[in-house]
């Protein structure tokens, strides 16, 4: 069975149907990308999966558990982390305090310390700046902090929303390398990206969204060579 299974999901904003009945799944260990233009509903889907939004119908199943109606803060302790669009680090808190927030659901201090060491090893820049307020970091550093913060909950799956948005090309490459690292450590990744080329480069599978519907899906390599995808999303 898939680790994350979404069935016939519909989400409304007031009268507007933003997600018009979609199905997708993410298997353990995969990197799955959701690609599509602005307004296609990618962020809405992630928000619904992690419980920030309630769907009007459909189900979300995570590790065999129906989490459709579960409050968002409880989903975190099941092993799902979400790096939100625009990073949303706590600007008034230090880098270290932000990372501790990520471990909010965990109790064992020893284990938290171990994860913190792991995060600092992976992101040496965060350790250098651990006492600095998160709001004073550069965009790329904030993205690293948002990812580090998500890792602090020791998740089995990470949802990442536009991690490359607004970053310089050097940072974009670095962020995608980090996502590959995270994945190779055994964490499953559900990635939402406008940078379709980069996303398809690191993903195993992908779904293409258009105005609230999945129009294409399949292996990332296959989609990369799909004429329609090339034309619409890869600029070829």
């Amino acid at each position: 069975m898939a680790m994350l299974e979404v069935k016939d999901l519909k989400v409304h904003y007031g009268m507007i149907e933003a997600i018009k009945g979609i199905d997708f799944e993410v298997n353990k260990g995969e990197v799955v990308a959701l690609i599509g233009a602005n307004g296609a509903g990618k962020t809405t889907i992630l928000h619904t999966v992690s419980g920030l939004l309630q769907p009007s119908s459909g189900t979300v199943t995570f590790e065999g558990k129906d989490i459709t109606k579960m409050p968002g803060h409880k989903i975190v302790s099941l092993g799902m982390a979400h790096v939100p669009e625009g990073r949303r680090v706590f600007a008034q808190l230090s880098v270290y305090e932000n990372l501790l927030m990520g471990a909010y659901t965990r109790k064992d201090k020893q284990e938290i310390q171990e994860t913190l060491d792991m995060v600092y090893t992976r992101f040496p820049r965060l350790e250098e700046r651990k006492t600095q307020l998160a709001g004073t970091l550069s965009g790329g550093e904030q993205q690293m902090l948002a990812m580090g913060r998500a890792l602090m909950s020791h998740p089995s799956i990470i949802l990442m929303d536009e991690p490359s948005m607004g970053l310089s090309p050097i940072f974009v490459n670095e962020i995608f390398k980090i996502i590959e690292d995270v994945s190779s450590m055994g964490t499953t990744v559900l990635l939402v990206e406008q940078n379709a080329k980069k996303a398809l480069d690191i993903a195993n599978r992908a779904y293409v969204l258009e105005t609230g519907k999945i129009v294409l899906s399949g292996d990332a390599d296959k989609l990369k060579n799909d004429d329609a995808v090339k034309k619409a999303y890869l600029g070829e």
Binding site: S50, G51, L52, P71, G72, H73, K74, V76, S77, A81, H82, P84, R88, V89, F90, A91, Q92, L93, M101, G102, Y104, T105, R149, S153
Partner: peptide, 13 residues
């Protein structure tokens, strides 16, 4: 600071 982000940390808002 941010209710949504807080919820994503597992905080009961």
């Amino acid at each position: 600071e941010d209710k949504g982000a807080a919820q994503l940390m597992g905080i009961n808002v």
